[in-house]
């Protein structure tokens, strides 16, 4: 999931208003930007949608890393279209956040100076071409698991953004699986790449769902507000159950010797990711944190003159039109 460990804000509002607000949510009504909402709801949403948007934008980088090295023209076009979609998804989400009274530039600056986070997964590198398949398959697969239920989230603009995202996203996971399948069925070297990609990205993908429920302190309020729809462990289990047969179909080795079907539970058992690694990555010590933030900072800094230039031209043009009238 692209929003991890979003802290819910405490709310100190009129209890009567709060109760009425909660009743609306419980009835399944959508909250729209101009409706009354608790300050905590608004702040939590800004943080969550902002983090989600940042993840899409930073998420362009690991896959973008292979656009210029894609092995065929068709793969290049597919990958470029996919990474472009991520930019589009970031854009939809920033717009949803903006309805809550924060500007995209403000959110961007909070990403760039580290006040806001993005998903831990994008701090891992893409090292061989099979990673591109694995990212689409596993990372987008994990994201979809979270985004599909979020289409029913209580905040109207967020829900609508998710509907649009999910509609476009369905191609991402499929293209990923298709790409890694070619590798798994290819030459011994290609198969080695596929296995390597799966082994490296498996646990980071599991981390996307956030810490275990027993350590996740912020869930309850967000779930009551319907801005978080499932618990971390629920989604993680669902992801493992869905993915294991897909790994087997590829003929790849399971990336975790602990994966075993548990007849009693009706689910696969699996080994928990190394949570100390997760917290290291969140703190900024993942393999690519520095590079990712530097790339976004450079794009923003180097682009300032372009944004200013085009705006200045628009203002001159408007002034000339005004003068002519």
């Amino acid at each position: 999931m692209y929003a991890q460990m979003v802290k819910s804000e405490a709310t100190q509002d009129d209890p009567e208003k709060l109760a009425a607000f909660q009743a609306r949510i419980d009835r399944g009504e959508k909250i729209e930007p101009k409706d009354w909402m608790p300050e905590g709801y608004r702040k939590t949403l800004i943080r969550q949608i902002g983090q989600h948007a940042h993840s899409e934008i930073v998420g362009q980088l690991p896959e973008g890393n292979w656009i210029t090295r894609a092995p065929t023209l068709e793969r290049k076009a597919i990958l470029l279209a996919k990474v472009q979609d991520e930019a589009g998804h970031g854009l939809y989400l920033y717009c949803a956040a903006e309805t809550l009274g924060v500007s995209r530039d403000e959110l961007t600056e909070m990403l760039l100076d580290g006040r806001m986070k993005y998903s831990s997964i994008f701090n891992y590198p893409t090292l061989n071409w099979a990673d591109i398949g694995a990212v689409g398959w596993l990372v987008d697969g994990a994201a979809i698991m979270n985004q599909v239920p979020l289409q029913r989230t209580s905040f109207g603009p967020y829900s609508r953004a998710m509907i649009r995202v999910c509609k476009e996203e369905s191609f991402h996971q499929r293209q990923g699986y298709d790409a890694i399948r070619k590798m798994a069925e290819g030459t011994p070297e290609q198969k080695k790449m596929a296995q390597d990609a799966l082994n490296r990205l498996w646990f980071p993908s599991l981390m996307m769902f956030g810490p275990s429920d027993k350590d996740s302190v912020h869930s309850e309020q967000s779930m009551a507000w319907k801005i978080k729809m499932n618990t971390n462990d629920e989604l993680r289990q669902k992801f493992v159950d869905q993915t294991v047969p897909q790994i087997e179909f590829l003929g790849l080795e399971l990336p975790d010797p602990g994966i075993k079907w548990n007849e009693e539970r009706g689910h696969y058992d699996y080994t928990d990711p190394d949570w100390s690694e997760f917290f290291d990555v969140i703190k900024g010590n993942g393999p690519c944190n520095t590079d990712r933030l530097a790339a976004r900072n450079n794009a923003w800094k180097d682009g300032a003159w372009v944004r200013d230039g085009l705006l200045a031209h628009a203002q001159k043009k408007a002034a000339r039109k005004h003068a002519a009238e």
Binding site: I57, Q60, L61, G64, I67, T68, L73, E74, K76, A77, L80, A81, V83, Q84, A87, G88, G90, L91, Y94, A295, N298, A299, W300, D302, G303, A304, V306, R307
Partner: peptide, 28 residues
């Protein structure tokens, strides 16, 4: 396509990718 993910503003990033996609399609 080298610009993908690095453009000055999201809208330009998306537009440049469209141009690159058209050009790749014409190449084919």
């Amino acid at each position: 396509s080298e610009w993908c993910g690095h453009a000055p503003v999201l809208e330009e990033d998306i537009a440049l990718a469209n141009t690159a996609l058209d050009l790749i399609g014409q190449t084919q």
